[in-house]
Structures are given as C-alpha cells and as structure tokens.
Write a protein that binds this DNA or RNA. Structure first.
Lengths: 387, 387
DNA sequence: CCACTTATTAAAGGAACTTTGTTTAATAAG
DNA sequence: CTTATTAAACAAAGTTCCTTTAATAAGTGG
C-alpha cells in the first residue's frame, strides 16, 4: 500500500514520520528564539534540550525562509565568537484597530508585538457607517505610511467594535445604530488579501489585560469596562471565553443587575454636564455632585459584577474603560462593595492599559492569526517588555 | 557534552529524540484501540496513519506490559484471519463514591468506564463524620467483594461531597456540620496506596453530564442541581471550570439571587410535609399546594440561573439533582422563566443521569487519574455505549 | 607567537518509521 | 483432496532525523 503518496512532487505524509519530529523540534526552536530574544545556537540548544547540530540545521532552514535573521556576533568575550540569531520580527507587521463610539485608535506592531505606530482619531458619536469606516481605513494607511511599512508586509488585522460579533460581522450593536449587520471583516480588508480578525471590544480588552496589562499573572479574570456602555469580558484558563453565542459577560440584559441603565443614570445625576468624560473629570477635581453620581454608578456596577464573580470565581477583577482612565475612580468603591457582597473579597485591579486596551487586544489576536502556522500551539510567552 | 545521560541504566532523554516520536505514536495507537474497541492491526494502522509494522511493534510492547490484550481471531471471512487486540480494560478498576446528605452511592467500573457494580446506601442526615465515612468504606469494600475484584486492582478512587473542596480536603460544608475540615482524600485511602480524587458534587455532576449525560454534544454548559441545596457546575470548553477558589457557580452567597433560601422556602410552603422529596412526590401526584410550592421554587431558581447564563453564555442548561428526579418537574417552568429573562432563550435539558450523576462524575475523574500516564492528553472519546 | 576558550564543522552511530517483497494461514472452488 | 485466492504476518532494506564524538576554526590574553 502506498501510504505516503508523492503528490505533485511533494512528500505528503500522515502519521508518525520522522518529519513529525522535525516539525515539533522546529517549532520548539523558533519558540525559544521568539521568547528569549537574540540567542546563540548553544543557548537555543540549552533551552530546547536539542543537540547543537540539530538546532543549527533547523535554524539554517528558518534563515533561508527569512523567518529568522542572523545578527552580527557579540564583540567582547573569550573564545570564538558565536553566531547570533533572532526571530525575524520585522519581516511582518500587524495592525490593531479599535473602532469606538468617540474615537478610532490604530496601533501598528511587528511580529513580536513591538509597537511601531499609534494613531488616535476623535470621531463624532453620530458619524455614519461609511464615514466611520473611512476614518479607520485612512488611519491604518497613515500608520503604514508614517512608519515606512509597505502594505504588502501587513500580515493580519485585528479589529474591535462594540456589539455582538459573529464570524467577522456585527450581529447587533446598540450604541452605533447603523452598525448592526456590518461585515466589518470584509469592510476592513485591504487590496491585498490580509486576514482580518473581528472581535467584541470588551473581549479584546480582556485579552490585552492578560497579555500586557493588569492580569498577566492570573489565568482566570473578569474585565469590567465602564464607560458609555458597561460590558465585561471573561478570561478562563488563560483563554478568552466567548460563550456559545459570543454573549459571555453581557449582563446588561438582566435589569435586576442594573448594568444597562447605569451610564444613563450617571449622566442624569449631573444635569447640564455634557458627557460621561466630563462627569468623571468633575469628580476627579472634587465636585461633590459628580462624586456622588460616580458613587451611584459604582453601586450599579457592583451588583452585576458580584453575579459575575460568583458565577466565574476569577482570581482578579480588572476595571477599565476608555473614559479618561475612569478605572481608578471606580475601583475603590467597587472593592468596598464587592467585599460586602461576596466574601472572601476578590482582588480588584485598575486597568494598566487605559484607552489603548482594545487596540492592544486587537494587536494580540492579529498576531496570533499571523503566526498560527509558525506556532501551532499559540504564541510563546515573549521576552518583550510590556512597553 | 553528555546531554542524554544514562542514569541507572535507563536512557533519560530530554528534547526531540526519536523516542519522543515513539511516545507520541504509542499513545496514538493506544487511543485508537481505546476509542474503537477490538481492532486488527490493519485497522489500527488505518485510523492512526502509521504503517502496519510500526503498529505491530507498538502493540507488542503494550501486550507485554498487560495494557493491551489479544483476543481470539474472528472466525468468518476470507483470507488469513487477523489477530485482534483490545484495550485491557479489566486490568484495572476505579471507584466513584458519592457521599451525600441522605445517601452514599458507590459505583465500580473498569478502565473503560464500564460499570460493574452499583451500591446505594441510605443514611441519616444527622449521621456523624466517622460513621458516614465507615458507610462509604464498607460500601466500597462490598462492591469490590461482590464483583470479585481484588483490592489491589483498584487504580484510583473518585469522591464527591457537598461543600467547597480544596486539595482533597473539605474546606467548608454547611449541610454536613462536622464535615468541614475533613481530609476526605486521606480518609478514603485504603491500605494500598490508591490515589483519591476529591471534588465538589455539583462539579462531578457537571462532568458526568458532559461525559454520559445530557450535555455530551456541547462544550459549554451549566448544570444546576436542585435539591436540599441549590448548586451549579460550570463546563467551559469541554472542561470543568472550578474557579480561582473552587467557587465557580456558587451563587448562593448573593441573597438577591435567592438560591440559598430556596429549599427552605419550598419546605415552608408545605407545612407538615416531611422533606423535599415528599414535596416533589406530592407535586407529581397533582397536589395543588405542592405544585404551587414547586412553582415558587422554580422561580427562585430562575433568577440565579439567569445570572449564570448571562455570565457564561452556555449552549445548554442541564437541570438535575438527586431528589426523585425533580429535574423534569422544574425544567418546564424554568424554561419559561428564562425565556423571559434572557433572550434568546437557552436550551434547558433534564439530567439524563438522575441520582447517579455525582458518582458517575467521580468515576470519570478517577478514570482520568488512573490513565494519565497512558493518555497524557486526556481520555480519548470512547466507543462504549453510555450504559 | 603561544596557550586557552568557545564555536563550528564533519563523521559515525543509533532509533524509529516506511516501503517492498516473501511467507503463512485461512476459505472457496474444482 | 488438491489448487487458487485472499489477506495477514514476517523480514529486510532504505530513509530521515537526532545524538555523540572528534577535529578544526576563530577569537582573547599573556
């Protein structure tokens, strides 16, 4: 029986070939290079446990495919200088786009997630669908242009949007009325066929807090975003939990939990003040009425958060949201209320990423997409400092 | 450098040896045998993609280690009859023990999870700790004795108990007062050093429903156990989610969700009736007052369940509980109320395992423990009919 | 220029898999 | 009772990939 047929001149094999071993070892080597930064072959050999000749052979292949780059050898030191290699981070780039109600934020990063360009555009909440999309598209184009990255080197785009997302399309969006039904994945696709990953904004913020934010050290977390809308993302076992219909953490639907009306109530408590950001700013500067209003808002938040906590039992709660870093205004009161509601009190942390959380999460999912063939088991934990 | 040292005469190797390949292929072969039932070498070769000689070699090793057994060849058919092999399921056994308030249930099964013996003992709710443990121990001994399984062939024990479990011990248990602080793992250890896996009962029921019950076809589910206590288990991505402190699904703590007092309220609504089982029995036979009481109970259940649904967004809700199969009495009303609370309405199913759910889940975790060296990636999906 | 250190290169040896060809053990037909 | 057919078991050869060992190369410091 011809099991491993020679199709089109390429060896196609199934089961447990030696080639399977090679694949495993190759990803191990690349993962080491990715996680450790610049490395000599001996170092890679040490961390992977593979012999030096094997590592050399594998790395040679990667260099040929421009996935790994050779660096000039380190000058000092005794003995023959070792050749040094690093992951070819600048061979490709990814973009993270946060399309929000009041702003559009684009981040451009290389394949190691190193940020190259950040571009923030304020937009009118009432802006229509095509105009809003145009802002996003030109912002992305500018990012590429300003950083001198040819569009052809863009490997993936991540995009965050409010609303329920399914299969790249926005199924339901209450805050951007003409947004419902939009196939955002298709809308953002550039001329070149770059894969676009679309995800709910709260989910992306959660991913970001786990990647580079306040939840790096835990595997179970709940991320509450307080802003014009209250939403939450759920991280379980180090992975985002979307839920069956993508609705995990959407507590707004249960009136008893008071999430849906919380923002409106906050605004109503401060008549005359323009928008939520203004209320938070007033509270921060000591305005008594605004402070009381924020306090009520925190109270509204607490009930739903408590339900979420009891359901999921995370290690930490991260409080975030795009509004002028509102997290720290809320965290204290929330901590107090949750301690009363669900003993033992959970740990409440303030977002470390502020209003870049969503775009940072978008970078992360784009990165995962762009490297899924290099790292079938997911991105290795990198050595890159979190900025 | 001596990388792969020869320690005590055994080759100890790290990285990407050919032996790594062998290990991978071996587990593939065993998994195929486990999942497919009795197989010829050619069949195993087909499903694994490995060549026949390799499969033969691997199986030979397994037979030598008594992990796989050879069967007599199938009589009919043309050509030389093929040797047949199957996973050596009867080489080892596991026990699942459900220690509840009113009963102790022990199930004995072989390494394929085939049930060999079931033993049910009714116990007084007020029974003390040592006596309750004695009931469990003798029930297990009887199970082994009756089925002719030597205690030395017991590979693992799974145990389910109400309360919060941490590291084999019961951290907190409200329904069995002198149970708190008990190291159940140690208490159930037999003379021979058999590993004991202890787990909260609702969690085990959830595992069981996913394994052999009403949630086999989904990866995200919530399992609500209604009985003398109301509790829930959370299944996410096909795995049990315990939560940071093992408290996931413990909604009882939030009074607004009405789970804590629900059983007492149900009982209070039917003064004079002995216990919950009696109330459910009365409702089943058409008693108006009991029916109304069960209706109120369902209402209490719905609020907390809705919170759980919005937090986790599972594909199905499974309603179970040990009380005279109360699930079907509750499911209808629950379905109706949840449809109103959280659109779109989730699918509500009645437990398929009844009062054996907890012990079945205990079997499952014991099985996983007993075979973790054979199947490092978890038990393969078996071919065994769910009884 | 020489000793020393460390990296690279080359060659040999071994494990594990696949392919190919031969032998064995059944059944079915003449 | 013998012979053809079929499919499994056995055996040998070849390949890939990894490891070990030994020899060579390229630096530094005295």
């Amino acid at each position: 029986m011809l099991r491993n047929a020679n199709v089109k001149g390429v060896q196609v094999r199934r089961g447990g070939d030696p080639s399977r071993l090679r694949r495993l070892n190759s990803t191990d080597v690349l993962a080491a290079l990715y996680a450790q930064g610049p490395c000599t072959l001996t170092e890679v050999s040490a961390v992977t446990g593979l012999s030096r000749p094997t590592v050399e052979d594998v790395v040679e292949d990667f260099v040929r495919d421009r996935i790994v780059r050779e660096l000039p050898p380190e000058p000092g030191g005794t003995g023959r200088p070792a050749r040094r290699f690093r992951f070819g981070a600048d061979e490709g780039f990814v973009a993270g786009i946060d399309i929000g109600v009041h702003k559009v934020l684009v981040i451009l990063a290389n394949l190691e997630g190193e940020v190259r360009e950040v571009r923030r555009s304020t937009v009118d909440p009432d802006l229509g669908r095509p105009e809003r999309l145009a802002v996003a598209r030109t912002a992305l184009a500018r990012c590429l242009d300003d950083s001198g990255v040819a569009p052809s080197r863009l490997r993936a785009i991540g995009a965050g949007t409010p609303g329920v997302v399914h299969d790249g399309a926005v199924t339901l969006c209450t805050v951007l009325p003409d947004w419902t039904g939009l196939d955002l994945g298709r809308a953002l696709m550039t001329e070149s066929p770059v894969p676009v990953v679309v995800e709910n904004d709260a989910n992306l913020a959660t991913i970001a807090e786990h990647w580079r934010g306040a939840a790096q050290d835990v595997r179970d977390a709940v991320c509450v975003l307080a802003g014009n809308r209250v939403a939450a993302g759920v991280l379980i076992g180090g992975r985002l939990h979307r839920g069956h219909r993508g609705g995990a953490g959407e507590l707004g639907l249960l009136p008893a939990l008071r999430w849906e009306e919380a923002p409106d109530r906050l605004l109503a408590a401060c008549p005359g003040t323009g928008d939520l950001a203004a209320v938070f700013a007033a509270a921060r500067s000591g305005d008594a009425r605004a402070t009381a209003a924020v306090d009520g808002f925190t109270d509204d938040l607490a009930t739903g958060t408590a339900a979420l906590l009891l359901a999921v039992d995370p290690a930490v709660v991260v409080v975030g949201g795009g509004l002028s870093r509102a997290g720290d205004l809320i965290a204290g009161g929330l901590r107090e209320r949750l301690a009363a509601l669900c003993p033992p009190p959970p740990e409440v942390r303030v977002s470390a990423l502020g209003d870049e959380a969503v775009a940072t999460g978008a970078i992360r999912v784009a990165l995962e997409r762009a490297t899924e063939d290099l790292f079938p088991d997911g991105l290795p934990v990198g050595s890159l400092p979190p900025r």
